[in-house]
């Protein structure tokens, strides 16, 4: 066995022993469960108690603060990229340019695939929505802290883990679909999209449910001391990344499909009388 391998083996054993000792200490009886699980879950879902005060004028849910922070980060990133990187784009892309082009190309492709009539606007919309959902969901991994009105410190959740954020996103997306129908097909297109009036509700609750389920599982894992040690690192990160990707993809795909349907040019149906007349003419 080489010297390097010996050191690695010893380090692994050391870590395992240290982890076991820590686990024994943490899982000792009466190891600090203060709030019942049902209260914790209710807080995670409803955010009734953990509100944050903004300049003493308005009290908001922590998810809205997360939304502002995520928006701020994305806007700064966009502006810096626009000023410093986009003018230096080359025909053969570097790593950052390639990543950016892949992101834009992915959503443009999705828009072209589902809504081939008009791709520019819907491509931009689903690009923004996808990036917002993905970055917003990953945001909760960083565990930024905020102080609630009642003086407790809370970890900022994903912007769309709040039902208000999910409803806003769902209804706004529905508005975009209606707008697409109106612009491309006039009132008829809008009425066609209006028929699917359950769409905003389903989109909102799907988004909220998916993101909330992630938050709940993470909360549940963190709640118990036994599972909060080692497991959350894997479960939290993987689960968050996975549902961030899935939800970004699902919402953007749904929006592009419904936008494509509402903006699709519809041919006027030929009346049966006209068909009969045509037939008569041909026979004559």
């Amino acid at each position: 066995m080489s010297k390097k391998r010996k050191i690695v083996s010893l380090a692994v054993f050391g870590v395992i022993i240290a982890a076991l000792i820590a686990g024994i200490v943490i899982t000792a009886p009466h190891a600090g469960i203060k709030e019942p699980i049902n209260e914790v879950m209710k807080d995670a879902v409803l955010h009734e108690t953990g509100r944050i005060d903004i300049f003493g004028k308005i009290q908001v849910n922590p998810a809205l603060v997360s939304a502002w922070i995520v928006t701020g980060i994305l806007i700064v990133f966009a502006v810096i990229t626009r000023i410093f990187f986009i003018p230096k784009f080359t025909q053969i892309p570097g790593r950052f340019q390639y990543l950016l082009e892949r992101g834009v190309g992915l959503f443009t492709g999705l828009a072209k695939q589902n809504s081939p009539q008009k791709t520019q606007f819907i491509g931009g919309y689903i690009f923004t929505a996808g990036v917002y959902i993905f970055i917003g969901t990953i945001f909760e991994l960083f565990g930024f802290q905020a102080v609630t009105v009642s003086g407790f410190s809370i970890s900022l959740p994903a912007p769309l883990a709040d039902i208000n954020g999910a409803i806003a996103m769902g209804f706004f997306s529905y508005g975009v679909i209606l707008f697409g129908g109106l612009v491309n097909n006039g009132i008829k297109g809008m009425l066609h999209a209006l028929k699917d009036f359950t769409l905003p509700v389903s989109m909102s609750f799907r988004l909220f449910g998916a993101l909330l389920s992630g938050a709940l599982v993470t909360e549940l894992v963190y709640y118990y001391a036994l599972t909060s040690y080692v497991v959350p690192v894997i479960v939290g990160v993987l689960f968050t990344l996975l549902h961030a990707l899935i939800q970004a993809y699902v919402l953007t795909m749904l929006v592009s499909i419904f936008y494509g349907e509402s903006s699709e040019k519809k041919e006027k149906p030929v009346r049966p009388e006209k068909i009969k007349k045509e037939k008569r003419r041909k026979t004559v």
């Binding site: 994305l74 990229t81 491509g123 931009g124 690009f127 923004t128």
Partner: peptide, 8 residues
């Protein structure tokens, strides 16, 4: 911002 500054 994302549409006009980055996507477009």
């Amino acid at each position: 911002v994302m549409y006009f500054v980055l996507y477009k």
